[in-house]
Design a protein around this nucleic acid. Sequence first.
DNA 1: CTGTTAGCGCATTCAG
DNA 2: CTGAATGCGCTAACAG
Lengths: 332, 332
Amino acid sequence: MAKKVGRIRDVARETGLSTATVSRVVNGAKNVKPDTREKVLRACEMLDYVPNPAARTLSTNQSRTVAAIIPTIEHSVFAKYIAAIEQTLGERDYSLLLAISNADLEQELKAARQLLGMGAEAFILSGSDHSRALLDMFDRRGVPYVYTSIWEQASPVPTIGYDNHLLAARAVEFLASEGHENIAIIHGPLHDNDRTRARRDGAVAAGRGKLKLDFFETVLSVEGGKKAVRSMLRGGRRHSAILCFSDVLALGSYFALFEAGLGIPQDVSVMGFDNLDWSAHVAPALTTIDLPAEQMGVEVATQLMQNLEMAQPIATTLLAAKIIKRRSVRSL
Amino acid sequence: MAKKVGRIRDVARETGLSTATVSRVVNGAKNVKPDTREKVLRACEMLDYVPNPAARTLSTNQSRTVAAIIPTIEHSVFAKYIAAIEQTLGERDYSLLLAISNADLEQELKAARQLLGMGAEAFILSGSDHSRALLDMFDRRGVPYVYTSIWEQASPVPTIGYDNHLLAARAVEFLASEGHENIAIIHGPLHDNDRTRARRDGAVAAGRGKLKLDFFETVLSVEGGKKAVRSMLRGGRRHSAILCFSDVLALGSYFALFEAGLGIPQDVSVMGFDNLDWSAHVAPALTTIDLPAEQMGVEVATQLMQNLEMAQPIATTLLAAKIIKRRSVRSL
DNA sequence: CTGTTAGCGCATTCAG
DNA sequence: CTGAATGCGCTAACAG
């Protein structure tokens, strides 16, 4: 129910100029006499004039809006990532349209349809697991999109993220290099998350033939981590280290271990994934893999804007992630 | 760089009808012959037609977009809240435009300007601390807005949330009823957060004349909580309980206490605020105040949509929040 | 440097 | 029940 607000023609009338000139001033065209510009600007101020976005979009066919569909916004590395996207877009006057899919392909499709209907010009998706219908829709319309949180050299769709397979393998190798040969790996649901699957595969590959790896699938939460460790412990104290595919799970592991009277890392080593802001501050400080969430947000937003404005192709880019060694893992 | 996609007139031509009729069908007007409707729908499908949002907005003056500006999205109760808003809006085909202000009035104003420029029809703000310029802008344009996470009966602007003052007082009273007379209160920055200030005031009011309350201001993070407890402990073991104005701070307190070799709740009781999803799963389980984040999101989204569509005034509403008693507080 | 003129794609009168 | 005509507010040629 927006009130009537100054329009371009009001400014034109007020200044005795044409709407074209006002438009030029407002859009920063340089071919305007300084005096004129001044006058227009003053009138805009006075009339509280702000260009109507719909009219502008209709006329230019550009909405300066990017959509991101994420599986969840809760307790995770996504928050930082989204914040980075929003800030980066904002710097160049783009806006972020956000939707949450709950890792459900149907919901994702529905959300995308709606966001497209809101004028989103480009899409940021998570992982590579999406419905054919969704991609077809984007392709038919020529809407650019990127997969994030993953890195797939060979993907036909550009990916901006890290190599989950490799990172998990590195984590396992690191643990092995510290003398751990019997490792419990705790992770979230596999069926709806290709990143988790890639990590598991990477771990398996790294351990093959050398290590004894046991996998525990659980809900991606502190509670889930706790339960997984409890069930691990029920199986006997066979593991010298626990690798969690999320710091959140690692936190749950900490508490399960505390409750069981086991010391970290004296009795069991624990390693995480994410490097959430608190992971350096739990006791003992958590050894984890630092995922470049923020950098990923900046990168994806930047590339999308460049694609939109200069038709520059989106480049698949691998972001560095490294192991942060802290105190929760000990050498055997 | 969206590809040319079917327009209303293409559908009209295809079906041999007028654009007006197509528009009627697409918008679900009932005065259309079933046969005609069928034919149009088929053509829409075939031509992959989706109404151009900008044109529609320009014509109807409604964008079906609501904006939310939040101070931060990280580690907090905000994630759940945002998710609830998004889902609720989505159910009625509204979209969420999100911006992050970093609790900075200038950034907030800039973001609002931009969101308004993107066509946001209503605004969701956090707390009651906003720049005059921002509110003037909304008022001049007749854009509805709500303050959330707070409840102020007397506020001229509608508020939807909980009573921070009262809740903090309740928390202090609860601790007192368990025999605690010497309480440390840990909270985030006061200068940029009116909700924190309200909680502090509530605590002070509840403790006046009866209790010994010491306040520790710190950064709102696990690390902040840790540091606050460390400085509290440096002052001698005077406090029997710690009240944190956020579960995140409570988690930091846990670790600081663990490191100091102090048991919870044997040596010190700890109470939080938020009831984040993990707070039931730390050890010992955290006694805290359950803030209705999700309900708040649903409520604010619903009311805003009703205001937009039926000019229904936004009602200030108080959401219930209650103390969740778990194991981190003991009776003296 | 500035004004005139066309649309952008759709919803909506008003006729019929 | 359907169509023709109009305008939403702005930008983009094209003149001048």
